[in-house]
Design a protein around this nucleic acid. Structure first.
Lengths: 194, 194, 194, 194
DNA sequence: TATGAATGAGTATTCATTCAT
DNA sequence: AATGAATGAATACTCATTCAT
């Protein structure tokens, strides 16, 4: 009997990887990276510990692939937020941020935890730095077009605010007035400005 | 040989506990809870591993006592920020927050890390929720007196902003424009308001 | 499709086995038995891990077949060293030994390593004992014909010397004065004797 | 009740270390370094796996301490072999070598195995190189004083011979004519020479 | 015949915790 | 009150071997 075809194998691989990554993602988001063991992930994924190392070089490599995967999913959307009118673009950004938070809280939990672990993982540092820079630069330009007096400071303030809202919402969940906050911010930065 | 008096014993206990808690505090703030071992804390404190279990039931119990201690310290200061004029009180709060961040980054690092570990430690969740509530209530009243249109929302926004500024400053440190942000906020909420 | 003939199959088997054994041989000689994994051998041989178990019952079985194969190869050459004149035979042996060492250091590395692993592998012990005995007997007869006073002792000394030279040469390689040693020994045992 | 005294503790430490090192030594000498697990050593020594790491940083560190310990024991004797008469010194060396082999076969098994593993352990390489150099230099000088024609070559030959005798004796044990070989060598190099 | 995904027992190492002194 | 030797369960990771295809 002949061996499995290459494509059938690839399919099996994709399935196993997905099972592992899904399990890892939810466990790490819930418990944190250090508190989640390979054994736990394997059990949750329904595979053997050994199999994990067919797909990932190490626990850290798994984390990296996890984050990259989740991030590239999110990146695709950024382009769609742009508009002719900078005011609209800004509003799109606010709306996107709150939508993300509601729809992918686990992802943002993971990202926030990792951000706070900078220095422990080289790849997180590089990633976070690059992200943050691009983000601030983009916002600064936008606010400049909208004639904010101190666009860079304001951009950083919004950046901080996003992080703060994220951390609080992710911690106290349904008790956090997310919708209210969204309206509030859009009013302040998009509607009432100028 | 005269037996140690009860009070003398108590004094020794207090001293040992303080040494241990100080060591634990700075190590955990620097490295995180998981990455700090009992052995390390004992060494830093200059006591034996065994002694730690005379005062703390477990590593987690040490963490709880640590946080409780640090928090009650913080509480004492709140009273001193009050003023007849709510505007001054608000400004005092802003100034206190930035001063704290600059002077005790380790404390805030620890608190932020713990806040984010909710789910792992029940006591952190209870504590954080209670704190946040009291905090928001206080700020809400203040902003009400200052006739802010949506005082509760605004209070929550400031709360989130504080957390966000803290997390970013604690992560990127000297690259964060802390002083600039302080002026910005005071202008916005205390000077220009009304 | 016509079914493969039996002889065609056999040919394929021989080819695959050879690829595997060659890969195993060079890897084990270079890194040692314990440090060489089945996965590594399969990769080097360009076959799948699974295929290895079609030909070899286990990793140890592979080792055994490897050593047997290498040894029977060596046996064939022994006959060619014989000469009418025992002095010439002796010189042929010396020259063969040094030539072997220079030309097939991997083989001798493997053999020496294995010899020293006695106790772990029963088959090595049996093999090594048999070899050594035959070897000593042969040399003893030769030296007897050359009228050495204590031919058996002398034979064992030469046997030990061979092993010693081998181990040192294989360890320190180019720093070992192999050529010099060869001349030295031939002078001593073949030229100057009697 | 007061804690154990420092000296009592030291005593306990020495005892535990000895138990571990003895177990490690005999197991590694018997089975080889890679094939001996920490678990096995701990079991043989009658202690927990964890305790091993109170005394040794790693498995390799254990090996290093093992070898250093065994070596320094041997080093002490070297000075006692020297004599006014180089012939006597040479004879002493031969006798010391054979005595060592008979009395501490496990030590020499270990050393020979390690020598063959050069390249895997940095410390073994340094140690072996230094040892071998000192050894050859010393023998060369001695043979020069005895007017051997090619003292350096001869020194290396004896060095190789020693290794060869050792490896064969350690492998086939009681079947190896150690005593006979000793007489043989002393006759050749000390009595009959010149 | 040949493949490689999957397994599970095994590896070295860490560390919170206990306990005799 | 204080010590630190000792434990054992847990950790990330490896690898010979199996088996469905």
């Amino acid at each position: 009997m002949s061996p499995r075809t290459t494509s059938k194998n690839e399919e099996i691989r994709q399935e196993s990887m997905k099972k592992i990554m899904d399990a890892a993602f939810s466990l790490i988001a819930k418990q944190g990276y250090e508190s989640t063991s390979i054994a736990q992930i394997a059990k949750e994924a329904g595979v053997s510990k050994g199999l994990m190392y067919n797909y990932f070089d190490s626990k850290e490599d798994l984390l990296e692939k996890l984050v990259n995967g989740a991030m590239s999913e999110g990146d695709k959307v950024i382009g769609e937020l742009l508009s002719e009118d900078p005011k609209v673009t800004l509003q799109n950004i606010f709306e996107w941020f709150f939508k993300e938070l509601k729809e992918r809280p686990e992802y943002w939990t993971l990202m926030t935890e990792l951000t706070f672990r900078i220095g422990k993982f080289k790849f997180v540092h590089d990633m976070a730095t690059a992200k943050m820079k691009g983000y601030t630069t983009f916002l600064t330009e936008l606010l400049q077009q909208l004639n904010f007096p101190n666009p860079e400071g304001e951009a950083k303030l919004i950046g901080s605010l996003f992080d703060g809202i994220a951390i609080q919402y992710l911690v106290i969940k349904e008790d956090y007035p997310l919708a209210e906050m969204e309206i509030f911010l859009i009013e302040k930065y998009c509607v009432k400005h100028k």
